[in-house]
Design a protein around this nucleic acid. Structure first.
Lengths: 222, 222
DNA sequence: GATTTAATTTAGCCATGGCTAAAATAATGT
DNA sequence: ACATTATTTTAGCCATGGCTAAATTAAATC
């Protein structure tokens, strides 16, 4: 049986490999930090996962998932994202609460449950925060959107994805009227990493902290 | 934190205290048997639960839940039955599959989730197999129906509750057209624990094994 | 009441997955 | 090239919750 802990590590490693900037090493300390455990605990688990051939570990260099490891990671992520979407759409959860709930449920559901919510949702391919949902076969699109914080002034764009790491930030976005599909345009960028002046949906204009803009991914719009 | 194992033991003990015939001792071996663990494992856990004041253990006599223990047991059972009903009603699960799925989910859901499915189901008081659902405050009705196997010949009755212990039996009941609400009448009882001849819903008559009838609970009907 | 049988408990082991403190190794700065 | 610093690993510990085998204690039978 694959334990909850193993699924969590593989999921975390997968997301570190892909989410982060290209060519960032996924090292013991980065994994430990993201998992919220001591470095020694991560070392132990990495050793175990390597023995199980779920990842390859180059000492002091970092880890890389094997096909088998990636498969488990993607299954876990699929569960997570389907559950998140189900919580949001079927049960009316706000998007800042779905991640925590899905983190616990993702390890508890059966294939049957996965299939049933997948069907109930109409076989979705995009999750509640705009992330691609891996297929049952372990395929995943890589949607690679620019960050709102990197936009040229005057460039209109549509919000396509947000980071779900910070629930407080998600609540803040809600309050600002920033959702998936919202049309935005940067009006002015302040120097020294200051806030940017953002036009929202053709009728509103607000100052938005750069950290928030950094966590919003957009499609360029005409 | 209350572990999954503790919740499982308390739930099992609660059900043994109530489900079984009056005045049956809930002993170490009965608990071990029902939990599917060795007797020594049950002894360990009973010791621990007694130290936590979740139950009282009289050596060689059995255990009894304390108020605190019963509270946790009923919370767990509430989760279980709400989830079962949700799986059946919202996701179309057949009633023989909901117990296993709920056994895993019941430990993973939050209060928020509990509240949302409770609301989505319209604040139900009866579960998918006819069991009472404990309230959030830890109250539970004790519905005490006679067994179909104990019915007098000719006495019409309505199925109100079934045991969920055996999925195969539930599938068999489905096949026979025996559901909650189904009207039945015993036509003939065979001697030596043989099958009983059962009239089902005014149009069908079938032989039903005594073991099945023993696991069906009914309301007497006029 | 003594003995057999059955239930329970104790003792000691195992795996999992955390932890801290110390040692080893690599990366960095001078 | 060497010293300092940072990262990683090892060593050894802890709690949880299983297990088997042996010892104990209660219950049942003669």
């Amino acid at each position: 049986m694959i334990s909850q802990a193993i699924e969590d590590y593989l999921k975390t490693i997968y997301k570190l490999q892909h989410g982060g900037t290209e060519n960032e090493r996924v090292t013991t300390s980065v994994i430990a930090d993201r998992m919220g455990v001591a470095a020694a605990s991560a070392t132990n688990m990495i050793k175990k996962l390597a023995e199980m051939h779920l990842l390859v570990h180059t000492p002091y260099q970092g880890v890389g998932l094997t096909g088998a490891g990636r498969k488990i990671a993607l299954e876990t992520i699929r569960h997570h994202r389907l559950i998140e979407l189900y919580l949001a759409q079927a049960l009316g959860y706000p998007w800042d609460q779905i991640d925590a709930e899905a983190d616990r449920l993702e390890h508890a559901i059966s294939e049957e449950f996965e299939d049933r919510i997948d069907k109930a949702l109409g076989y979705p391919t995009i999750g509640a925060h705009g992330e691609p949902i891996p297929t049952k076969q372990g395929k995943i699109e890589d949607l690679d959107y620019p960050r709102l914080s990197d936009l040229e002034t005057g460039q209109p764009a549509i919000i396509r994805r947000v980071s779900d790491r910070n629930p407080e930030m998600l609540r803040y976005m809600d309050q600002m009227g920033l959702q998936l599909g919202t049309r935005v345009e940067v009006r002015e960028k302040a120097p020294f990493s200051g806030p940017l002046q953002l036009k929202i949906d053709a009728d509103k204009e607000e100052a938005l902290g750069l950290e928030v803009a950094y966590n919003i991914f957009v499609d360029l719009a005409p």
